[in-house]
């Protein structure tokens, strides 16, 4: 059974008289521990898909099975529980709490989860063992994104969702963050979905979902993903 199975997902928005389909019958599977890249230009429906997988929005029709549960049918409360226990989120702009230290930012997510990892351990794993008591403003962009990853992973989620995780970072930092994501995912057997418009990322993925005009144009599987160090963009 795949970790995530999107089946004929349609998400339409009412705009006055007309109906706009942001997602038009999208289907794909993500296997357990698979590193998936959802690729597409802006306006293709990436964010809408991200919102639905992340439990922030529900599809108009279709099914989204996560470990066998249909997330598409969940109510508001259950969706909150789903986000809390099953999804780790990595934001483009990190979204750390400015008034909390790195450690406290991870604690914030951990304190409400059942099988969470220790924040200190997680921060050490992302290479911030000696920056735990720093506030976000005292950290570089790359370091902040590392905290964000530690926060997402410390919850021990079944899916790690990343929204343009390198979008706000410079080339070299972006690469190292991606490597971290990739390694952490391998190590912890997490399914990762990265949503991006950066086509260069497709070579490192196990699976690439191309989205255009709300449809899944193609789904390709890389038998031999290229290590991030060798990818250039």
């Amino acid at each position: 059974m795949p970790a995530i199975s999107a089946q004929h997902i349609i998400r339409s928005f009412q705009n006055g008289q007309s109906e706009i389909r942001a997602l038009d019958d999208i289907s794909f599977d993500v296997e357990n521990g698979e590193f998936t890249v959802v690729l597409g230009p802006s306006g293709a429906g990436k964010t809408t898909l991200l919102n639905i997988i992340g439990g922030m929005d529900s599809p108009t029709s279709g099914h989204l099975l996560v470990n066998g549960t249909d997330v598409a049918t969940l109510g508001k409360r259950e969706l909150t529980d789903y986000r809390r226990n099953h999804v780790g989120f990595v934001f483009q702009f990190y979204n750390l709490m400015a008034n909390l230290t790195a450690r406290e930012n991870v604690e914030l997510a951990v304190e409400m989860c059942k099988d969470a990892y220790s924040p200190e351990e997680m921060l050490r794993k992302v290479g911030l063992g000696d920056r735990m008591d720093n506030f976000p403003a005292q950290l570089s962009g790359g370091e902040q994104q590392r905290v964000s990853i530690a926060r997402a992973l410390a919850k021990n989620p079944s899916i790690l969702l990343c929204d343009e995780p390198t979008g706000a970072l410079d080339y070299q930092t972006g690469k190292s963050v991606l490597k971290l994501l990739h390694d952490m995912c391998r190590e912890n057997k997490k399914s990762v979905i990265i949503v991006t418009h950066n086509a260069a990322l497709k070579d490192m993925a196990d699976k690439v979902v191309h989205i255009k005009n709300g449809k899944a144009e193609s789904i390709e599987t890389n038998e031999h993903p290229i290590p991030i160090e060798e990818i250039e963009w």
């Binding site: 409360r77 809390r84 989120f89 934001f91 979204n95 409400m112």
Partner: peptide, 14 residues
């Protein structure tokens, strides 16, 4: 707003 939105995404209940 941003902090609140983030908390909600992280799974904070109402």
């Amino acid at each position: 707003q941003r902090e609140l939105a983030t908390l909600k995404v992280l799974g904070y209940r109402d």
